[in-house]
């Protein structure tokens, strides 16, 4: 089982509903967020292109954060998700420095926090992650890459996609449809 997510950059309007849904679902402290919107405007006026992406932890297959964690708090969990064990984390910050996607942050309580793909609170109960389920343009797809019938496998078969900085060697599990 390999959980993955695909975000359609052609359909995303950058409304930030995914950000708010995640904050609500996961009790993310005020001012912090586990997912965020990036808008890239590319070109010279009047030939401009815009790409909007909903970004979060890439749940990498070769995760630098897991590799450098001195206590094993950052670990691979079910379906290849990368999670943090709260009471094993010493808050040293090595994983924050090691993440090329800047997806982690120190929670005010001390441990390091990040996107969990809503694994325990939603996915294991058969629901989609909060961000996916609220998206008003339905631009996000979630599922198991090993299951050819999962929404994410289906859409990746049909559409062109990219991952962020694949040259960092992290094998990310967050795909962007282009």
């Amino acid at each position: 089982m390999r959980y993955a997510m695909a975000v359609d950059t052609k359909k995303c309007v950058g409304c930030s509903d995914c950000v708010v849904a995640c904050q609500t679902e996961n009790n993310v402290p005020i001012g912090y967020c586990r997912d965020w919107i990036v808008e890239v405007t590319d070109g010279t006026y009047p030939q401009l292109e815009i790409e909007i992406r909903s970004e979060r932890c890439n749940h990498c297959e070769n995760a630098p954060c897991v590799r450098c964690c001195p206590t094993g708090a950052s670990h691979y969990s079910d379906g290849g998700t990368v999670l943090v064990k709260k009471y094993h984390c010493i808050g040293c910050g090595a994983c924050i420095a090691s993440c090329p996607y800047d997806a982690r942050f120190p929670h005010p309580d001390g441990y390091v926090d990040k996107c969990t793909f809503c694994l325990d609170n939603r996915v294991k109960k058969g629901m989609d992650p909060a961000c996916v389920s609220v998206c008003p343009t339905k631009c996000m797809y979630f599922g198991d890459l090993d299951d050819p019938r999962s929404p994410v496998s289906q859409i990746l078969k049909k559409r062109k996609y990219k991952t962020l900085i694949p040259e960092a060697g992290t094998k990310p599990h967050l795909y962007f449809l282009i």
């Binding site: 206590t71 009471y87 094993h88 984390c89 010493i90 808050g91 040293c92 910050g93 120190p106 309580d109 001390g110 441990y111 390091v112």
Partner: peptide, 8 residues
């Protein structure tokens, strides 16, 4: 430097 000092 640690953020979660009680668990060092």
């Amino acid at each position: 430097d640690l953020n979660h000092q009680a668990y060092f």
